[in-house]
């Protein structure tokens, strides 16, 4: 039975990290209806900034993490200001193409640094002995990852539901023209959406980097890995990202634990999330929590 609970715990840990990584997609889509293809690169950049501040600048990892989140917040905001602000009102596909270009630019810039071609590892800062309870273990790195994810997701949920700016962002997502007519600054909302997405990406990158080590390919690939999570949860739902993340995490762990290696099955942990995604989308094309818009004429 402890095996089952171990898989549940591992599934939740992995799922919550997926949810945090998926959050950046959701935050941008929620306010601007744009899918940021360069999100994986921003995740990687956040992780590298934390590492550089910790190891090269010699700052405590806790402060480096906070600084990295702040730096990435402004970095993402600048990206929106420089590259995307002029595209407000243009077809969405144009903006998505710009994010593809952005992905190549960030790739190129990272390759100019040692992070593009070398592997790094965060210095150990948490106890090595895992927390074990009833035969189920969880590492401190994973636990801290889950705690940070929970705090960030709760904060964003509150922000969008209760704060004036959050409600403005939802309004812009709903109808840009109507929002402008009631005095909401659409460009500011877009900037803020990118900035908050950058913030969540830096947090996700730092957590993933602590688990896998810092390798650019591994880190930026998470932008694609979490894509089924984003689609399954619904592109514009924070709670959807959380639920879908945990579902995917659990499916992967159960598939690896119970299916792989039996009945001639291998690699189901990688395939099953996509199969389930397809099945769910057949019945709920907007994802589990996505808004289904109905236009009546």
């Amino acid at each position: 039975m402890s095996y089952f609970f171990q898989l549940v715990v591992s599934g939740i840990v992995v799922g919550s990290i997926y949810a945090l990584s998926a959050l950046g997609f959701v935050l941008i889509y929620k306010s601007s209806r744009v899918l940021n293809i360069a999100h994986g690169q921003i995740i990687a950049a956040g992780a590298f900034i934390t590492y550089a501040l910790t190891v090269w600048a010699g700052i405590s990892i806790y402060i480096s993490f906070l600084l990295s989140v702040v730096i990435t917040f402004f970095l993402a905001m600048s990206v929106e200001r420089i590259f995307l602000r002029r595209l407000i009102g243009e077809p969405i596909i144009s903006v998505i193409m710009v994010t593809i270009g952005l992905m190549s630019i960030i790739d190129g810039l990272v390759y100019l640094t040692p992070f593009g071609t070398e592997n790094f590892s965060f210095p150990a800062f948490l106890p090595k002995t895992p927390i074990t309870f009833g035969g189920v273990s969880i590492s401190w790195t994973q636990l801290v990852g889950v705690i940070i994810t929970t705090i960030l997701i709760a904060s964003f949920s509150w922000f969008f539901k209760r704060s004036t700016i959050g409600v403005s962002m939802r309004a812009v997502s709903d109808d840009q023209l109507a929002s402008m007519s009631v005095g909401i600054s659409v460009p500011k909302v877009f900037g803020l959406a990118w900035a908050t997405a950058g913030l969540s990406a830096a947090a996700a990158g730092s957590i993933i980097g602590n688990i896998t080590g810092l390798n650019f390919d591994t880190l930026h690939a998470f932008g694609i890995t979490v894509f089924p999570v984003v689609i399954l949860g619904g592109l514009d739902s924070i709670i959807g990202a959380v639920v879908a993340g945990i579902i995917m995490g659990l499916i992967q762990q159960f598939a690896a634990g119970y299916l792989d290696g039996h009945w001639g099955l291998y690699g189901t942990a990688d395939v099953l999330p996509y199969i389930i995604l397809l099945v769910i989308l057949l019945f709920k094309p907007h994802g589990l929590f996505g808004i289904h818009e109905i236009e009546r004429v």
Partner: peptide
């Protein structure tokens, strides 16, 4: 006993416990 093709795994607990159980 088994050939494991890995994915982009964040946690290999299930794989490792399965292998050890075998």
């Amino acid at each position: 006993v088994e050939v494991v093709e890995h994915g982009k795994d964040l946690d290999n607990t299930a794989t490792l416990q399965r292998l050890q159980s075998k």
